[in-house]
Amino acid sequence: METWILITIAAAFLQNVRSTMQKHLKGVMGTTGATFVRFGFGLPFAFLYLALLVWVGRSLPVPNGTFFLWALVGGLSQITATFLLVHLFSFRNFAVGTAYSRTEPAQAALFGLVFLGEKAGPGAIVAIAVSVVGVMLISVARTALSVRSLVTSVFTRTAGIGLLSGTCFGLSAVAYRSASLALAPSLPAPDYLMQAGFTLGFVILLQTIVMLAWIALGEPDELGRIRAAWKPAILVGFVGASASFGWFSAMTLQQAAMVKVVAQVEMLFTFASSFFVFREWITRLELLGCLLIVFGVVVLIVQ
């Protein structure tokens, strides 16, 4: 199995752990605070990863204008996507809420084509399509199932928030890949770990500054709630930064859309969390949708 696939599966597991803990934090702080924790408390760990890479003798890249542009686009898009995803937890259960944002592989493929000229092969297109159908099934699993409900499900308020979250996640994935690849010419040889580590360090610093300013100006009371929950927040930051390092590494090695399709295995971890942690029941259609998502991943891996 290729390295990027193994990295992606590990990152998907870590991201689910982070999302599970963020939902718990949502009970003691607002959406903005729970979103900030993902970045602010992950910053020290992102710098630690970068410092370790330098310590073992890897060369630091020299950023250029292209890097800064894509890092800015990716960082702001991810803030928006994370905010929408955390907000989405207020509407439906944990598994279904996360599922709406899982259309990001298809959207990442589109952004990759538009901005990078990356074309998906027939097998990849099938994998993306099957995964998206799985997401649609999950979205209507608790309503009367019909062709109309499958189509109209994407026009509900909840679906709109989730789809927009997926759009922002898809855009940020392509932007991060573009930023990381822009660093390669300044290195003695391509080094996906350093490219990923440097991109992560810069982006998470940017996100921390933006979110901290936002909270200080608009929701200053949230700072007190964040301080009160600093212990679980540190764990969220560590797991989140670790997951991001995995994503950035995988997307440096492979097209963002391909990485995001394999990342759909997160739904397996999500359903496990939904059932065992939050005691939320899973319907047959939700299970079928999950199986379709996994099937899409398998199609991509074996093609």
Rank of each mutant, 00 (worst) to 15 (best):
A108C: 02
G289F: 11
V261T: 13
Q254E: 15
T31E: 10
D221L: 08
L287N: 11
Q254P: 08
V135G: 10
S172C: 09
E219A: 03
L53R: 05
L85G: 03
A81C: 11
G197A: 12
T31G: 06
V259Y: 06
F276T: 10
T31V: 14
T208G: 02
G296K: 07
T20H: 03
L137H: 08
A51E: 04
L183Y: 13
G246Y: 14
A233F: 00
P232H: 00
L285T: 09
V277H: 09
L217M: 14
R284T: 09
V277W: 13
V17P: 06
A144C: 00
L6V: 15
F275H: 04
G237R: 06
R38I: 00
K26F: 08
N16Q: 13
K26P: 02
W247N: 04
A213P: 02
T167A: 14
A272V: 14
V277G: 06
A229M: 00
G201P: 06
G30F: 07
L113D: 01
T80I: 15
G57M: 07
V140L: 03
G197F: 03
M1A: 13
V17K: 08
Q107D: 01
I5K: 05
A182L: 10
V297F: 09
S19W: 06
V259P: 05
G197H: 11
S186K: 03
A184C: 03
Q78L: 14
T167L: 15
L110Y: 12
V261S: 04
W230K: 06
W247A: 09
S153L: 02
F155S: 05
Y192S: 14
T31F: 02
L72D: 01
A179M: 05
I215F: 01
F202I: 15
S274M: 04
I301P: 01
I226V: 06
H24N: 13
C168V: 02
E104S: 13
A108P: 06
S90G: 01
T80A: 15
G40F: 10
A184D: 12
V28C: 00
S186R: 07
H87E: 13
F67P: 13
G117C: 11
A109I: 05
S273Y: 02
F36H: 09
Q207E: 15
M194F: 03
W247L: 10
R279G: 13
S274F: 09
V298T: 11
F275S: 15
V265D: 06
G166H: 03
T8C: 12
V297Q: 09
A95F: 07
M21C: 00
G121E: 15
V210R: 05
N16W: 08
Q15S: 14
L187T: 00
T143I: 13
L187V: 02
T98R: 12
F245L: 15
V96H: 02
L223K: 04
F45I: 13
T20D: 02
F115L: 15
A175P: 04
A11R: 11
A71Q: 10
L150P: 11
A127H: 14
I226H: 03
A12H: 13
A144Y: 00
A257L: 00
A243V: 07
I161W: 10
L88A: 15
A12L: 05
F13W: 05
R38V: 04
P185Q: 01
L217A: 15
M211F: 01
A81D: 11
G74E: 12
W230R: 10
D191S: 13
